[in-house]
C-alpha cells in the first residue's frame, strides 16, 4: 500500500506527529496492561482508544495525566506514583484495553475531571469488544468471536505464566510495583475478596459498577 503523496510538508509533519504520538501511547500502555506493544498494536484499537481516552478525560487533563504517567514509568515507577484522579484515569485506560469499554469512574474522579458527559460505561465500538485483552489473561477468547474450534472446550487449558516471567518478557524493571494500596504482591492462590467481583444485584448494573466480593462463605455442612 502506498501512502498518498503529501500536498505539502505540513501534512507529512502532521502524520509523523500522529505516529509518534501513537507510538508513545502504546509504549506507556505496556506497563499498565502487562501486554507487549506488539499485542497492543495487533488489536487495531490503539488510535481509537487514545482518542476515546482524550475525549472522555478532556484533552488538557489527559495530557496532564499522560505527562505524569510517562515520567513515572520512564523512571521505573508504577501507578502508585499517581494521585487519586490520575490513578482512576490509568485504571479506565487499562479497563479500555482489557474490555473495549470505557468504564464508569469513581464519582470523585468524575467530578474532579469536570467531565461534561454522563459517567456511564459504554463499549467504544462493536469492533473493540472482540479485541479485549481480558480473554487472553486466561487463555480464552471473547464470547461470540475468535472461536477456537469444535471440541476445544474439552481440552485442558494451558498453565498460567508467572507475573515475573511476563515482566521479564516485556522488559519491565524487576523492582517496579504495578499495584496500588497493596503493600505486598497478590498471590494467585490467595486473592483477597475485595479484588474479586461480588454478586451483580441486577442485570442492568454494568461490569465496572459491580460491587467487590465479600469474604467467601464457610460451609458448616458435612463434606460429600
Amino acid at each position: 500500500m502506498t501512502a498518498p503523496a503529501a500536498a505539502d510538508g505540513t501534512q507529512d509533519e502532521t502524520q509523523a506527529e500522529a505516529q509518534a504520538e501513537l507510538k508513545d501511547f502504546v509504549a506507556y500502555c505496556v506497563p499498565l496492561t502487562g501486554f507487549a506493544a506488539f499485542d497492543l498494536y495487533a488489536t487495531g484499537m490503539a488510535r481509537l482508544y487514545l482518542d476515546t481516552a482524550r475525549r472522555q478525560v478532556g484533552a488538557a487533563r489527559f495530557a496532564e495525566f499522560w505527562e505524569k504517567w510517562r515520567t513515572a514509568a520512564a523512571a521505573g515507577g508504577g501507578p502508585e506514583l499517581l494521585g487519586p484522579t490520575h490513578r482512576e484515569v490509568a485504571r479506565a485506560l487499562t479497563y479500555l484495553w482489557f474490555t473495549g469499554a470505557w468504564p464508569r469512574l469513581a464519582p470523585d474522579a468524575h467530578a474532579e475531571l469536570r467531565r461534561d458527559m454522563a459517567n456511564v460505561e459504554f463499549i467504544v465500538s462493536p469492533s473493540a469488544y472482540p479485541e479485549g485483552l481480558v480473554w487472553r489473561t486466561f487463555h480464552g477468547h471473547p464470547g461470540g468471536a475468535k472461536p477456537p474450534g469444535f471440541g476445544t472446550w474439552a481440552v485442558k487449558p494451558p498453565a498460567m505464566v508467572p507475573a515475573a516471567e511476563l515482566r521479564d518478557d516485556l522488559g519491565l524493571p524487576a523492582d517496579a510495583v504495578y499495584r496500588t494500596g497493596l503493600p505486598d504482591g497478590v498471590s494467585p492462590d490467595a486473592i483477597p475478596a475485595h479484588l474479586l467481583p461480588g454478586h451483580r444485584l441486577s442485570r442492568d448494573i454494568p461490569p465496572s459498577a459491580v460491587p467487590t466480593a465479600l469474604a467467601p462463605t464457610t460451609p458448616e455442612e458435612d463434606p460429600v
Binding site: 502487562g34 507475573a163 511476563l166 504495578y178 497493596l182 497478590v186 479484588l195
Partner: peptide
Amino acid sequence: DGVFGPELRR
C-alpha cells in the same frame, strides 16, 4: 487498592 500490568494479568 488495585493491580496493574503483569500482576493484573496474572
